[in-house]
Design a protein around this nucleic acid. Structure first.
Lengths: 191, 191
DNA sequence: ACTCTTTATGCAACTAGTTGCACAACCGCC
DNA sequence: GGCGGTTGTGCAACTAGTTGCATAAAGAGT
């Protein structure tokens, strides 16, 4: 149940239309909660029906016309409630680790190149985050909001750093593996 | 499309019944691809229909009777294909980071205790992983399968380490934040 | 014999996220 | 004044995962 709250947060930061939200998700909030434009439009409809947001009075036309939303007090209250409520950590799901585990059974053939590709992607993302950090969080500023946002960005940076390191390490291991096993026969006994 | 392949991997490691698989997911594969027993039963049905697995001949009775599955050659081939195929990294989704970002707007009230709770959970998980590492990967063994499985476990360990560190840091920051803001009024301008 | 718990399998309904496409208005331009 | 791209909104169908419950057999206790 995170998407509506991601949208409320974004709208509190700045009232926007559906498409503007989509764009902002692509380059900011979406770094840790991605969403497509269809999800966003659908959710905006629901949030409006529930009385958490409303369209800005300015215009309110038909299809193909911009329609901006702002958060109502009830929406802010709901967001505060959700933020403070206890939530269990997500059950982790990572296909890449799964593939490595599978590779231990059926062989590593073909996996290496995709690992390299992922490494490259994570490096790029890391560079992007670092750029944002430099631009938005110079060493001196430290209003509470900035501290919190910086903390979130640091999580992104450190996670990407972790992945680049881990992938680098994995690729090294691959290099040292006895060449071309390809069938991984004798696997047994779960762990 | 990862669950069927997670199941194929588990079954290749050791043929099992639905419930056995569920248990093994809870304490091994599930660490990076969790699944409920319903998902597993449903998927076993599909995999059998597609000819990737079959029930072990021994018994084949009705409800309430154990039914074990093994992987057929087609299933192994499918798993190898999937493992080697290029896949884009998952779009990241983390409610906790989202909540922190929301807290920058609506205030941090009530969030701190849940952060502590998460910290404790991650510490526990880390301890569990370390235990497994000690038990299953003594310094000397290094058959290729072990190297790969160890690599996966290291990812788990390093990720949990990252989260404990980050949460510790976050809680420190919370302590230093100017007391009780609670409304976070002047937030504007997305980043 | 009979109830209670555990083991084991499974259906049905629901929620969340994704993909593919439709459609309206506006903007420039030639 | 009509043509083609961009902006903006949205429906419908699909896939994946979750929740709640039903059912059946086997063993354990009394």
């Amino acid at each position: 149940m995170s998407l509506p709250h991601a949208i409320l947060t974004a709208l509190l930061e700045k009232p926007s239309s559906g498409l503007e939200l989509t764009r902002r998700f692509d380059k900011s909030i979406g770094y840790f909660w991605s969403a497509t434009h269809q999800q966003i439009y659908r959710e905006l409809g629901k949030l409006e029906a529930e009385g958490f947001i409303r369209t800005l009075p300015a215009e309110q036309p038909a299809r193909g016309q911009k329609k901006s939303y702002e958060v109502l007090p009830a929406g802010r209250a709901e967001l505060a409630r959700w933020t403070a409520a206890a939530q269990d950590p997500k059950t982790m799901r990572d296909p890449l680790l799964l593939r490595l585990r599978a590779a231990a059974v059926v062989g590593t053939e073909g996996l290496e190149s995709d690992l390299s590709r992922h490494l490259e992607l994570h490096r790029r993302q890391l560079a992007k985050y670092r750029e944002i950090e430099e631009r938005d969080f110079p060493p001196d500023r430290d209003a509470p909001q900035d501290r919190l946002r910086h903390l979130v960005l640091r999580a992104g940076i450190d996670l990407e750093t972790f992945w680049t390191q881990w992938l680098t390490h994995a690729l090294t291991e691959f290099g040292e593996l006895p060449g071309a096993d390809g069938n991984g026969s004798g696997a047994d006994d779960a762990r």
